[in-house]
């Protein structure tokens, strides 16, 4: 990979690490707290050695108590610190649900604007890593119903850094979702220094004429792969990386669908009531007369969790091949 001056090639883990490091370095108010973030340096080594440089008061090893992690972070945020709370795996976030939904998301509204909650909750999510029941979950649909909470799910290292910086700068709570499988799989150029990418802005990764594909996280990479394959077959598919799930970039989606007239939404989370359902409804409401085919969703089946057995995991997960099949079918519809 050719590296532009002022940037370097990082994978997603390194991009998170670098962004957190710079945030700790540049702003004394920044605090990192979570399970194993200190002495152990995070299970993916994201915060390795942070505790030695910034001390145990700013890099806090917490008990295994997610409600407390978020609850304490909310208090810190309301009183002027810039906490970055970590939920070790998204599968463990449920005990913190009340703190996130009932408290953090409503702080500004409840206090009539007197308090805000500048809190970032980072958590690795997603499957395809043989993580089985408790290391594979996607949680975005559980939280995207909640006004007052922003949700970000970047796919590329440069977006990881720009969006994590934006999340840290944001005066309100942001749930920052990092797809585990992309951690070391995806590498890319990342500009040096502090920069932000606005929350709520999608990225058109590949332009196309016959079909719009909207995705986020790991599946963006596979969708891109499938779309490029279809390009060889003479089909023109546009791929949009949502990047932010909420706020959602409606304009980017609508503009694209008005051009291609067909829409496929791909996500790893379950189909029923998922992000795709919201996008479908929005497009049906606002672009009905642009549609030249059914809106389709390619998502996980409605089973309680991803199995450990490889065939079960394959069945649950999509793949570039499954995506290409769905794309072909819609282009030809």
């Amino acid at each position: 990979m050719a590296v532009t001056a002022g940037s370097k090639v990082l994978n997603n883990v390194e991009a998170v690490r670098e962004t957190l490091y710079e945030a700790m370095k540049n702003d004394d108010r920044t605090v990192i707290l979570g399970e194993d973030v200190g002495a152990r340096g995070n299970v993916f080594l994201i915060t390795k050695d942070f505790i030695n440089e910034f001390g145990p008061e700013r890099v806090i090893d917490t008990p295994i108590a997610e409600a407390s992690i978020v609850g304490i972070a909310i208090g810190m945020a309301m009183e002027g610190l810039r906490p970055i709370a970590e939920i070790q795996f998204a599968d463990f976030i449920y005990p913190a649900f009340n703190q996130i939904v009932g408290e953090a998301a409503k702080t500004r509204y409840r206090s009539n604007g007197e308090y805000t909650c500048p809190l970032v909750i980072r958590t690795p999510y997603g499957g395809g890593v043989r993580g089985a029941l408790s290391h594979s979950v996607s949680i975005e649909a559980l939280f995207y119903h909640v006004p007052g909470l922003k949700i970000v799910a970047p796919a590329f290292p440069a977006d990881v850094k720009g969006l994590l910086n934006a999340a840290i700068d944001d005066p309100d709570p942001v749930l920052f979702l990092e797809h585990k499988k992309t951690y070391r799989l995806i590498k890319g150029e990342v500009p040096e220094g502090h920069y932000t990418i606005p929350l709520g802005k999608a990225n058109v990764l590949k332009e196309g004429k016959q079909l719009t594909v909207v995705s986020y996280g790991l599946y963006v990479h596979w969708a891109l792969e499938a779309a490029k394959k279809l390009e060889d077959e003479g089909m023109s598919v546009e791929v949009i990386d949502l990047r932010s799930i909420r706020p959602m970039d409606k304009t980017a989606i609508l503009n694209s669908v008005e051009k291609t007239r067909k829409l496929l939404i791909i996500h790893e989370d379950n189909k029923f009531g998922g992000i795709g359902a919201e996008i479908s409804a929005m497009v049906a409401e606002e672009a009905l007369f642009s549609l030249d085919g059914p809106i389709r969703r390619l998502c996980a089946p409605d089973v309680p969790a991803m199995g450990y057995a490889e065939p079960l995991e394959h069945e649950y997960m999509s793949s570039p091949e499954k995506m290409a099949d769905a794309m072909r079918e819609l282009v030809r519809f």
Partner: peptide, 10 residues
């Protein structure tokens, strides 16, 4: 072999 969930190379 894949040694670890997120490992892509060895």
């Amino acid at each position: 072999p894949q040694l670890g969930e997120t490992v892509t190379e060895g």
